[in-house]
Amino acid sequence: SSGGSSILDRAVIEHNLLSASKLYNNITFEELGALLEIPAAKAEKIASQMITEGRMNGFIDQIDGIVHFETR
């Protein structure tokens, strides 16, 4: 797709992000992006959206560029 990722790509990214949230206590956007094979800024945006929508527990430290995952 030309304008970003398809629905399937997005679903795969979100699935992998949720998997990462179970493996890590926290991770930088750079590391997360590398893990998900997407730019760091996109990793931040998707993580932020999932947390806001209540689909993933955690919070974002924008100063240090880190996602902190919280286990249920």
Results as ranks from 00 to 15, higher is better:
K42W: 15
I66P: 01
N57E: 10
E30D: 09
A34G: 06
L18V: 09
H68Y: 15
G4D: 13
H15D: 12
V12T: 12
G33T: 03
K45Q: 15
L8A: 11
G54L: 04
E37W: 06
S21P: 02
V12N: 10
E44H: 12
V67I: 15
N57K: 14
R72A: 14
G4T: 12
L35G: 00
V12E: 11
I38Q: 02
S1N: 12
D61A: 06
D9L: 04
Y24E: 03
I13R: 02
T28C: 04
N57M: 11
S2P: 12
S5M: 07
T28Q: 02
L36A: 03
V67D: 01
G33E: 05
L23F: 09
A20M: 11
L36G: 00
I46G: 00
A47D: 00
Y24V: 07
I51A: 02
E70Q: 10
L23T: 08
H68P: 01
L35W: 07
E14L: 05
Y24G: 05
E31Y: 06
R10M: 15
S48N: 09
E14A: 04
G65Y: 04
S5T: 13
F29L: 10
E30F: 08
S1L: 06
S48D: 08
D61Q: 05
E53V: 05
F29W: 07
K22P: 04
A34S: 08
F69E: 01
D9W: 03
D9P: 09
S5R: 08
P39L: 05
G58T: 01
S48F: 09
I38M: 06
E44L: 14
N26T: 13
A40S: 07
Q49K: 07
Q62V: 14
I66A: 07
I27M: 13
I13M: 07
M50W: 03
I7V: 12
A34L: 11
S5Q: 14
E31T: 06
A47T: 10
I13Y: 06
D9G: 06
G54Q: 05
S19A: 15
I51G: 00
A41R: 09
Y24Q: 05
L32F: 03
I51Y: 01
Q49Y: 04
I7M: 13
D9T: 05
G4V: 12
S21H: 03
G54S: 04
N25S: 13
A43E: 00
G4C: 12
N16Y: 10
M50E: 00
Q49R: 09
M50L: 11
N25Y: 12
E14R: 03
L17S: 01
A43Q: 00
N26F: 15
N25E: 14
H68D: 05
F29N: 00
N26Y: 15
I7C: 13
N57A: 13
F59L: 06
A20I: 15
G33I: 03
I46Q: 00
E14C: 05
K42T: 15
R55H: 05
G4Y: 01
E44T: 09
G54T: 02
S1E: 14
H15S: 13
E44R: 13
E70I: 09
E31K: 09
K42S: 14
H68F: 11
L18W: 04
P39A: 06
M50S: 01
I38K: 00
N16S: 07
S21M: 07
F29K: 02
S5P: 10
E30N: 07
I63R: 10
E31W: 06
L36K: 00
A40N: 04
E31N: 07
E30S: 08
S19H: 15
N25W: 08
D9F: 02
S5H: 09
I46R: 00
Y24T: 05
F69Q: 02
S48H: 13
A47H: 00
E30I: 13
L32A: 01
L32M: 04
D61M: 07
V12D: 08
H68L: 05
Q62W: 15
N16M: 14
L23M: 13
A34Y: 11
T52D: 13
M50I: 03
S1I: 10
R10T: 11
A47F: 05
L8E: 09
L32Y: 00
E30Q: 09
A43V: 12
E37H: 14
T28P: 04
E44A: 15
L32W: 02
I63S: 09
I63E: 12
L17E: 02
F29V: 05
H68I: 09
L35H: 04
D61L: 07
A34D: 08
L36N: 01
S48Q: 14
R10L: 13
T28W: 01
E37Y: 06
I13F: 04
V67N: 01
I66T: 11
M50T: 01
H15K: 15
E14M: 07
I46V: 07
T71F: 07
A20S: 05
L36R: 00
F29Y: 04
Y24C: 07
A41K: 10
E30G: 07
I13A: 05
L35R: 04
L35M: 08
Q62H: 15
G4K: 12
A43H: 00
E44P: 01
H68G: 04
D64T: 15
L17Y: 02
E70F: 10
A34P: 02
E14D: 04
V12Q: 13
E53I: 05
E70K: 07
G58C: 03
A41H: 11
A41F: 08
F29E: 00
D9C: 06
N26P: 07
E14W: 04
K22V: 08
N16H: 10
P39G: 09
Q49L: 07
T28F: 03
D64L: 15
K42D: 15
E53K: 05
N57F: 10
S6W: 01
G65T: 03
L18S: 05
S21C: 07
I60K: 00
L17R: 03
S21Y: 03
A34F: 10
S2F: 02
T52S: 13
S5K: 12
A34Q: 11
L36H: 01
F29T: 03
T71M: 07
A20N: 04
L32I: 04
D61T: 07
A20L: 15
Q62D: 09
S21G: 07
H15F: 12
E31H: 08
D61C: 09
E53C: 06
L18E: 05
A11V: 10
I7N: 13
K45I: 13
I60S: 01
E70L: 09
S19K: 15
N26C: 15
I60L: 05
I13L: 10
G3R: 09
S6V: 14
T71W: 08
G58W: 08
L8F: 12
H15M: 15
E30Y: 07
A20H: 06
A47K: 01
I27V: 07
G54A: 05
I13N: 04
G58D: 01
A43D: 01
R55A: 05
E70Y: 10
E53T: 08
I46K: 01
A47N: 00
M56A: 04
P39N: 08
K42I: 15
A47Q: 01
G65S: 06
Q62Y: 15
L32R: 00
T52A: 15
F59G: 03
N26V: 10
G54Y: 02
A11S: 09
M56Q: 01
A41N: 09
K42L: 15
R10P: 09
L8P: 14
F59W: 15
A43P: 00
I27F: 05
E70G: 12
I66H: 07
K45C: 13
E53Q: 09
N16I: 14
I60D: 00
Y24N: 05
Y24M: 08
M50D: 00
V12F: 09
E37A: 12
G33M: 03
A34T: 09
D9R: 03
I38V: 08
N25I: 12
A11K: 09
I27D: 00
T52Y: 08
T71S: 11
K22Q: 10
D64V: 11
L17V: 06
